[in-house]
């Protein structure tokens, strides 16, 4: 694929725009905070977004496999899965890339058009991957929710053969 021609060359611009779009899904003052980037420990969400987006972008351009893409997008989806977005809002950022590509890549020769079309398909694929990831994260959370009390608190009792007559509960 001849992405070196256009898309890959515009990597920085595309990533910048993509990052800003993702940041814009947060509350306004948070978005501006995220945009400050900074220390990855003082501003972890921002660091995760930018690192993850870059890896995913590289993956898309370099025809990476599902596993690789999945691994790249994992940190970002993992964060968004606990930030109170609806599932659709959580994944929506994937589709921003389609529009950004068309904003940035302006040449209208047929080869570029083909590239874009190919990219679109990959982005659709990425979205599907993200859904899997998102669900995985949510399931993980529910698993944690369901199991934490049992695992942490009662396992010891089980081992000891004790059962608690609990009045705990909502």
């Amino acid at each position: 694929m001849s992405h070196e021609s256009g898309i890959a060359r515009e990597k920085n611009r595309i990533l910048k725009a993509w990052f800003e779009h993702v940041a814009d899904t947060y509350a306004k003052q948070t978005a501006s905070f995220l945009n400050q980037k900074g220390d990855r420990f003082a501003n972890p969400v921002s660091a995760i977004i930018s690192e993850s987006l870059e890896k995913v972008f590289d993956g898309l351009v370099e025809d990476a496999g599902v596993n690789e893409l999945s691994e790249s997008i994992d940190p970002l989806v993992r964060v968004r899965a606990v930030q109170g977005f609806s599932p659709s809002a959580s994944i929506s950022f994937v589709f921003f890339l389609k529009k950004i590509l068309r904003d940035v890549i302006t040449a209208d020769d047929s080869e570029v058009a083909m590239d874009l079309e190919l990219m679109d398909k990959k982005i659709d694929g990425l979205a599907l991957i993200c859904f899997d990831k998102f669900m995985e994260c949510r399931e993980k959370i529910y698993e944690l929710k369901a199991c934490e009390v049992r695992n942490r608190t009662f396992r010891a009792f089980e081992r000891a053969g004790l059962l608690l007559n609990s009045k705990n509960g909502g």
């Binding site: 990855r40 420990f41 969400v45 964060v79 606990v82 930030q83 959370i141 529910y142 944690l144 929710k145």
Partner: peptide, 21 residues
């Protein structure tokens, strides 16, 4: 608690991030 897991996971992110590092 168990029911506020999302809050806990997001609140614990900065700490987890450093551990991950």
């Amino acid at each position: 608690a168990g029911e506020n897991m999302e809050l806990r996971m997001s609140g614990g992110l900065p700490r987890a991030n450093a551990v991950k590092y």
